[in-house]
């Protein structure tokens, strides 16, 4: 699949790596958003009318053993909302957005299937927000590399060796700066 700008285009697309905890929405120049996923999820949103797209990359915190609680969804909701808001700032309209989700591999045999938990969260978030999920490649016990063209809404997802995945760390508490209270 050709993801880059059309053949003969004077401008080569800039490659942007979206790391865990990050959000990136394409601008008005050709870009390819790329990431490598183990248990993490990358959600790609695309508005075909505004021709604006973006990607996030997150991992929900695993619940404490025996706690009986579900994974901490606050951070996932935050990164999904950040992606939607940045899409809207770029001209996207929520009711036109379509979603892809990738990742959610269960990389460590015998441990909680945290990849499945993350994929379930992403599906449930999108359903609650009324955003159609048009492509999903999640689960299994392998890692994936995703490339996304935010102007065309095209993705490519390939299986890669587990060793290619950067260390993934669940964010159990809000990231620095999050949750801060300022009274006027």
């Amino acid at each position: 699949m050709v993801l880059a700008a059309a053949v003969g285009s004077p401008e080569e697309p800039r490659r942007i790596t979206v790391m865990q905890g990050q959000v990136h929405v394409g601008g008005d120049r050709p870009e390819i958003l790329t990431t490598i996923l183990g248990s993490c999820i990358a959600c790609c949103l695309y508005d075909p009318v505004a021709r604006v797209g973006g990607m996030n990359h997150f991992l929900l915190a695993e619940p404490a053993a025996g706690s009986g609680t579900v994974a901490d969804q606050n951070y996932g909701v935050y990164l999904m909302e950040l992606l939607i808001n940045q899409m809207m700032t770029g001209g996207g309209v929520k009711s036109r957005m379509k979603a892809h989700i990738y990742g959610g591999g269960n990389m460590h045999a015998g441990m909680t299937r945290i990849g499945d938990v993350n994929a379930r969260f992403a599906r449930s978030f999108l359903a609650a927000e009324g955003i159609p999920l048009v492509r999903e490649e999640t689960g299994g016990e392998w890692a994936r590399r995703v490339e996304f063209d935010p102007m065309l809404g095209r993705t490519r997802c390939r299986i890669v060796a587990p060793g290619a995945v950067p260390a993934e760390r669940a964010v159990a508490r809000p990231m620095p700066g999050g949750g801060e209270v300022e009274l006027f």
């Binding site: 508490r173 809000p174 990231m175 949750g179 300022e182 006027f184």
Partner: peptide, 14 residues
């Protein structure tokens, strides 16, 4: 506005 809280919110701080 009376104040501002940055998401993701911390339930105890809220």
């Amino acid at each position: 506005a009376t104040g501002w809280i940055v998401k993701p919110f911390d339930a105890d701080k809220l």
